[in-house]
Design a protein around this nucleic acid. Structure first.
Lengths: 126, 126
DNA sequence: GCTAGTGTATTAGTAGAGCAATACACTAAA
DNA sequence: TTTAGTGTATTGCTCTACTAATACACTAGC
């Protein structure tokens, strides 16, 4: 079960998005299985329904889940693929930022790749 | 001369920081040369002096410039090195974000590197 | 000392994000 | 057709980031 960090600077709705993505990827909710309803989850996490709704809407917008009227939210069949595609997009954004920095310093691609590798080595993998 | 985009979501003070870093790196202002005074620049960019001051303070904090009381702001002798170091830190942050995404998807370093390379290929170099 | 130039501090206004309270509208199932 | 469950819309509060107006304090140079 996902848990919310009240004191985190990361907004609650974003924590829910992240948590749901992770749980779907981990197989906690398989394709076409039903997610907890907005009200259920709001109650469980002690949060306003609108906050859950916002998270679910974003997940719907990115194609990870879909709604059946009156019945609730369900995991998209291809949602694992979608999530991976989405993740790739997010990564691409960051790489874009990195390249913007690199450009303003006059670095070319191979220099950026070197920096990337050397920083990557220092990262924890957990 | 730097120019400000009023309608950008990027705060003005941040645009000034970025612009200044770029101009220093480009050699518009060499080591120990004097930057436009806070009031001058505020007038030129049609912005409040405090906004310029904030940008200059951050540049000072990261060691790119220094102040002489009553005389203005000057470029640090080693500021090019400092800026490169700073840029590297910024890049590292983004790489950290990328790794956070990767972790939640269960990707290891080599997979991340592959994605990075393939995205890098698609980036414009300008 | 005076003056014109520096950077700095105080205070306040504006806009936006985030979240909750509450009421609404729809649908499945009995 | 009623009921209990869905998601949705409206509204307002709070907090924070950003910016500006204005007044202050210091310093070089005459």
């Amino acid at each position: 079960m996902m848990n919310i960090n009240e004191s985190s600077p990361v907004p609650i709705y974003q924590q829910i998005i992240d948590g749901m993505r992770r749980e779907i990827l981990a197989g906690v909710f398989g394709p076409d299985s039903r997610l907890p309803s907005i009200r259920e989850l709001a109650l469980a996490l002690k949060v306003n329904p609108n906050t859950i709704a916002r998270a679910y809407q974003e997940l719907e917008a990115e194609g990870a889940i879909y709604f059946k009227r009156g019945q609730g939210a369900f995991v998209t069949a291809k949602s694992t693929d979608d999530l991976l595609r989405q993740a790739r997009l997010e990564m691409a954004k960051h790489i874009g930022e990195i390249m913007a920095i690199a450009r303003s310093m006059g670095l070319d691609r191979s220099q950026v790749r070197k920096i990337f590798d050397s920083v990557l080595e220092q990262q924890e993998v957990k």
